Amino acid sequence: QLNAMAHQIQEMFPQVPYHLVLQDLQLTRSVEITTDNILEGRIQVP
């Protein structure tokens, strides 16, 4: 299920590496919260 959620987020934010999306999802278990984390700059994109 997390993989499906990660792919959904990757479609919206292809610039964010998959492993970072998955790592955040493991903590949040939420597409909405992880999306917010990306938008708020809480996930550092190399």
Rank of each mutant, 00 (worst) to 15 (best):
P14A: 04
Q23F: 09
Q1K: 12
R29G: 14
I43W: 05
R29D: 07
A4N: 09
Q10G: 08
L22V: 08
F13I: 03
N37E: 01
M12W: 08
L25Y: 00
V21D: 03
D24S: 04
F13M: 03
V16C: 13
E11Q: 14
F13Y: 08
A4F: 11
E32A: 13
P46D: 11
Q26D: 06
R29Q: 12
Q8G: 06
Q26L: 14
H19F: 11
N3I: 15
E32D: 10
I33R: 13
I9A: 00
P46Y: 07
L20F: 06
E40T: 14
G41M: 06
N37G: 04
T28M: 02
Q15N: 14
I43T: 04
Q15K: 13
Q26N: 08
N3P: 09
M12P: 02
S30R: 04
Y18G: 14
V45K: 08
P17I: 05
Q44E: 09
G41C: 08
L20C: 13
D36N: 15
Q15C: 15
L25N: 01
Q23N: 08
Q44C: 11
H19K: 06
V16S: 03
V21K: 00
T34R: 01
V31A: 08
L20M: 09
G41F: 05
Q10I: 14
G41D: 05
E32T: 10
H7L: 13
A4P: 04
G41Y: 04
F13T: 01
I33L: 12
I9E: 00
Q44P: 12
M5R: 04
R42T: 05
S30H: 03
G41H: 06
I38C: 03
N37H: 08
L39W: 05
T28K: 00
Q26P: 02
L25R: 00
E11H: 14
L2Q: 04
E11G: 09
H7W: 10
P17R: 04
Q44H: 12
R42H: 06
F13Q: 01
N37V: 01
D36K: 15
I43G: 02
I38S: 01
H7K: 15
A6W: 05
D36E: 14
L25C: 06
L2V: 07
E40A: 15
E40K: 15
A6P: 00
G41S: 05
Q15A: 09
E40W: 09
Q1D: 15
F13N: 03
Q15I: 06
S30D: 07
Q44S: 13
Y18S: 12
E40D: 08
E40C: 14
D36R: 15
L2S: 03
H7M: 13
V21G: 01
M5I: 08
V21F: 03
A6Y: 05
R42Y: 05
P17K: 05
E11Y: 09
Y18L: 15
T35E: 04
P17T: 05
Y18W: 11
P46H: 10
L27P: 01
I33H: 09
V45Q: 09
N3D: 14
D24F: 05
L25A: 00
T35S: 08
A4K: 12
L25T: 00
E40N: 15
F13E: 00
R42M: 06
L22H: 04
H7V: 10
P14D: 03
H19C: 14
D36S: 15
T34N: 00
L25G: 01
Q8W: 12
Q1V: 12
Q23T: 08
L22Q: 04
Q1S: 13
V21T: 03
P17E: 08
A4C: 12
I38V: 05
I38W: 04
E40Q: 15
M5G: 04
L20A: 08
L39H: 06
E32W: 07
Q44K: 13
R42C: 06
P14H: 03
V31D: 02
Q15T: 11
I33T: 09
M12Y: 07
P17V: 04
V16K: 00
D24Q: 02
P14C: 06
M5K: 06
E11F: 09
A6K: 01
L25V: 05
Q10T: 11
I9L: 10
V31S: 06
Y18M: 15
Q26G: 07
Q8I: 13
V31Y: 07
I33Y: 06
I33S: 07
T28I: 02
A6H: 02
V16D: 05
Q23H: 10
L39T: 07
P17C: 12
Q23L: 12
Q1R: 12
H7Y: 09
Q8Y: 12
Q23A: 14
R29N: 13
V45L: 11
R42I: 06
E32R: 13
P46V: 11
L22K: 03
I43L: 14
A4R: 11
N3V: 15
M5E: 06
T35R: 14
R29K: 11
P17G: 04
M5S: 04
V21Q: 01
D24K: 00
Q1A: 12
G41K: 06
I38M: 04
M5C: 05
P14Q: 03
P46R: 11
Q10K: 11
Q23S: 09
A4I: 12
I38T: 00
N3A: 15
L27F: 10
N3L: 14
L39K: 12
L2G: 03
V31K: 08
E11T: 12
Q8T: 09
D36W: 13
E40Y: 11
L25I: 07
A6G: 04
F13K: 02
A6T: 05
N3M: 15
I43M: 08
Q10P: 01
Q10H: 15
V45E: 08
T34F: 01
L22S: 02
Q15R: 09
L20P: 07
Q10N: 10
H19P: 12
R42E: 02
R29I: 06
T34V: 02
Q44R: 13
I9W: 02
I33C: 08
A6M: 06
R29S: 08
E32Y: 08
Q8N: 07
Q23D: 09
P14V: 03
I43S: 02
P17F: 04
V31F: 09
Q1P: 11
T28A: 02
Q1H: 12
Q10D: 03
H19E: 15
L22D: 04
M12S: 07
H7D: 10
V31M: 10
V21C: 07
V16F: 12
P46Q: 10
T34H: 01
Q15E: 15
V16W: 08
D24L: 07
E32I: 10
Q26C: 13
I9F: 03
S30K: 04
Q26R: 10
V21Y: 02
V16H: 04
Q1I: 14
Q10S: 12
H7S: 11
I43Y: 04
T34K: 01
